[in-house]
Computed example of a mutant assay.
Amino acid sequence: MPLDHYVTLGRSGLRVSPFCLGAMTFGEDLGWGSSVEESQQIIDRYIELGGNFIDTANFYTKSHSEKILGDHIGRHPARRDRLVLATKFSGNLYPGDPNGGGSGRKSIVSACDNSLRRLQTDYIDLYWLHNWDVHTPIEETMAALEDLVRAGKVRYVGVSDTPAWKVAQANVTAHFRGWSAFIGLQIEYSLLERTVEQELVPLALEFGIGITPWSPLKSGVLSGKYTRATAGSAKPARGGFVEPFLNEKTFTLVDALEEIARAHETTVARVALAWVQGRPGVTSTIIGARRLDQLEDNVKALEVKLGADDLARLDALTKPTFGFPQNMQPIFPAIHNGGTRVNGVQMPPSPFILQKGEKPY
């Protein structure tokens, strides 16, 4: 599957590439990241390969990420209109200003106008709530976003890093009031981060929200760079994000990824990316490339087709154990439909079912 085999994002008509280009590393303002020149080369190559979906945020690299995109794309309307540009609000760039971030109306409108200025465009294709603001009623946030949509400044809205129950509340509120609802759910998702499968992934499947995973390689932990052999010598640039995961569990997983990669004549990173992209509900996985060669390597993950044995092996190593109510799921079919055939599947008998001739009390 190449980058130009577009898919619709959730239950919407917005067509995006199966891999989204993450721009969090555009700019060297935080001491790591891509130079302006290399960022431009990465953008050009991604578009050349057929990609059309680019994701950033108002405070990535102190807002330099948006400016790099604006300088490179925003000045060319024809090129801009062929792309799906996504950015986020919530992050506060102004120390001491209580309204400089969050999800209140004042903050959202200001953040949107500043993002439009930096991106050098008059509309944002997909505007993400970056993370839940516990101090703002969700009705206020959704109403402000609806106003931006009606004003033509925003085309679609999405949500990132927010509890499932709050996303459900937001979308139900929007549906009942005729407002724009979230069509995308941006969450951390990888072989080392599967807790989202307890609530957030089922939410997305039920509501028809397209999942766009971030950090599918767990900040590079699953890139193939960190193995038992290199554990002492490979010093991560973002130590705080990487070092806590350089342990026996991870190295056992990387060993398995290496064996699967050899069998498919590919790389560890591509196998890890292919696993994420193949998960239920996933529309477009965000790949963050700091170098052009990383982009070239990661895009080839779309060619990797994992078999049932590969998936079962990775599942056995990484599937988390969930508590209530997920641990009750095997019992529910028997309680609901014990001993009958439903949708072509024979249900197990229930221990609570009445025997022949018995009557309920």
Rank of each mutant, 00 (worst) to 15 (best):
D122E: 11
M24R: 14
D81P: 00
E358Y: 04
R341F: 01
T212V: 15
K67C: 05
A301K: 10
G51F: 02
P333W: 08
L49S: 04
N58V: 03
P95L: 10
P77G: 11
R11C: 06
S103T: 14
S17M: 09
D44G: 09
G338I: 02
I42R: 05
E139F: 05
P163H: 03
T61V: 13
S63T: 12
G339I: 01
T121A: 11
L246P: 13
P325E: 03
Y123A: 10
A170R: 02
P351D: 04
Y94T: 15
E146Q: 12
S17L: 06
P330L: 03
R11T: 10
S17W: 08
V167E: 01
M328I: 12
N52F: 04
A237R: 08
L116M: 04
G91Y: 13
Q41T: 13
G70S: 02
L273M: 04
T141C: 05
E66P: 00
G178H: 00
L273K: 10
M24S: 10
V109E: 05
G10A: 10
A312S: 12
E258L: 09
S180Y: 12
A301E: 01
G278F: 07
T252Y: 03
D161A: 15
N171S: 00
R75E: 15
G31L: 03
A256T: 14
T227R: 13
R270F: 03
V221L: 02
R79N: 02
H130P: 13
T267W: 07
V16F: 02
H72A: 12
T318S: 09
M142D: 04
I353A: 13
T87S: 14
L83H: 01
S110T: 14
G232Q: 07
Q169R: 05
R80F: 03
V345T: 01
F53C: 05
L116W: 02
L145Q: 11
R177S: 08
G323S: 06
I286Y: 13
Q41M: 10
N337Y: 14
H135N: 14
E296Q: 14
G281S: 09
R228T: 06
